[in-house]
Nucleic acid binder design. Structure first.
Lengths: 294, 294
DNA sequence: CAGGGTCTGTGCATTTATAATCGGATAATG
DNA sequence: CATTATCCGATTATAAATGCACAGACCCTG
């Protein structure tokens, strides 16, 4: 196998005219240079230098090859320039999160970040099911619940709290006359679903859906009372919180990255910013209103 | 100091998608590849791969640099070609050709050449898939069909003609009762395969293979009728040509070299001799018998 | 002509790089 | 659901590359 570095040694000798001078320019011993040029000559079955007592001189064949070697060097320099010119910030960061959390909580806080980091392209993936970070489907994921996979680093960013919300006319009826808008059975062991099914057992569920957006819109249309994340409901003024006689569930929120990807600078600063947004909205001191029932 | 060879390892991982695959292609251990890529990343202060459990994946930065690395590789290959191009007569010439063309057509005509050029070592590479001349996998290639790569010079050496052949008892049956020995679907758009599938549509294909040698031996064993190159079939006296009601396909044959390599004397005279052998066997005036059905 | 400087070649000790192996985790397979 | 294959990472023994030191050759200079 031809060693690319041997060509580097060849060039140095060709330019400096002697083993020793080449060795000095490469910061190695002259014996090393000698061996590697020998190696190259053996590999390509060509004598590149005449070994004169006063120094090594290029043969005709070696002379022909010098320009070829310089072309390689030029390419390598191009590689290096390109490498140092590459802005490690430039590129895409893919963020995966539950759709409504993305659209109603993360997105509004992103304007400044986008403006101040024009070289970063954000790819926001709204998925009900957590993206697989091990498969690099996303660089950063926001998950409700602590992830169990190894090699994943999780940073707690507060808690998503829930509350019952409905239009004004739903605040009056007694609990028996209420109509509830609940979750369907697509995820039977969802904590908030279990809580809600239990809470609303003596009333009637008018509608069930697996889509939080649908439930939100149903509540906004006045169809009944839905269990909604506080961060979501509080941004709609006509949705009023329904007093609770027992605490509503909460779910811990985590920002998750692959341990390896964390070392990328642009992913890191994006993650830092997201952590800022999320802890601001979900952190202990700014918890939504439902946890302190009015 | 940036080690040029590290870029070679980087390229291998980028192309093979995993440490292990890259290591296999380089004939080293995966730990070596890992260390050298780490080294390169340290040197250029850039993260080139995401280490995922299932393989290493290029980061955006790595992706940018891959084309640069390929430019370097291209220069090195140019260096190598140039090196073998200025070489005098002694040395190795690697010839790539379809296996049966090599063994049954080229090889028999080579005895005199080998005897009269003892300093040349011939390396005959029988490959179903054309060797990559740009990557210096061979010095000379015989291909059926005009090559499209730039920097390659192609010399027409005649045409490989085909005919149907079988043992004597297959000359009698009507076309409906024949058994055919055909090509499988590994190369669906092979011209002779398409022709044969069409020609034999009302009869039965007893056997299919992707290996011409297998089909030849099947025909020699009396299993049925195969579509064989005339140069091949005519060297087996008991294989008789089956009359055709429409002309069989032919494929143009080319001897191909890299433009740089053509300058090498030993490659040149080898190529000249091969052109002699091939035009003698495949040229216009010596076309095989199947094109003039009996 | 002697002496200092610089060059190459070579043998040997040391440092460095590599191969070999094991273990754990993950997909693909039947 | 067990089996097989493949991947990566870590560790240790081995092999290879390098540095080092010395010897001989050449040139220049005083």
């Amino acid at each position: 196998m031809l060693q690319w570095d041997d060509i580097r040694y060849f060039l140095a000798v060709a330019r400096n005219g002697s083993l020793s001078a080449a060795a000095r320019s490469l910061n190695v011993e002259h014996s090393t240079v000698s061996r590697r040029v020998d190696q190259l000559e053996t590999e390509i079955r060509l004598r590149l230098f005449d070994r004169l007592p006063r120094g090594w001189q290029l043969t005709d064949e070696g002379n022909d090859l010098q320009s070829r070697a310089e072309a390689i060097e030029e390419s390598v320099l191009g590689f290096q320039r390109s490498a140092s010119g590459v802005d490690p910030l430039a590129g895409t960061v893919r963020v995966s999160a539950p759709p409504l959390l993305l659209s109603n909580l993360i997105l509004p806080g992103l304007a400044g970040f986008i403006a101040s980091h024009p070289v970063i392209t954000l790819e926001l993936i709204g998925e009900r099911w957590a993206a697989d970070l091990m498969r690099a489907e996303a660089d950063i994921a926001i998950r409700l619940g602590r992830p169990s996979e190894p090699d994943l680093v999780a940073r707690s960013v507060g808690e998503v709290s829930y509350g019952l919300y409905g239009l004004e006319h739903w605040t009056a009826p007694s609990r028996r006359d209420r109509l509830y808008l609940g979750f369907d059975d697509s995820i039977p062991d969802l904590p908030q679903k279990q809580w809600f099914d239990e809470y609303g057992r003596e009333a009637h569920f008018a509608l069930r859906s697996n889509d939080m957006g649908t439930l939100l819109n149903a509540a906004l249309a006045g169809l009944g009372i839905a269990l909604l994340p506080d961060f979501l409901a509080t941004s709609y003024p006509n949705l009023l919180p329904i007093p609770l006689d027992r605490p509503a569930p909460t779910r811990p929120a985590f920002l998750v990255m692959h341990a390896d990807i964390r070392r990328s600078q642009r992913v890191r600063i994006t993650a830092d910013h997201l952590i800022g947004i999320l802890t601001e909205a979900l952190g202990e001191n700014t918890r939504g209103p439902s946890s302190k029932p009015r």
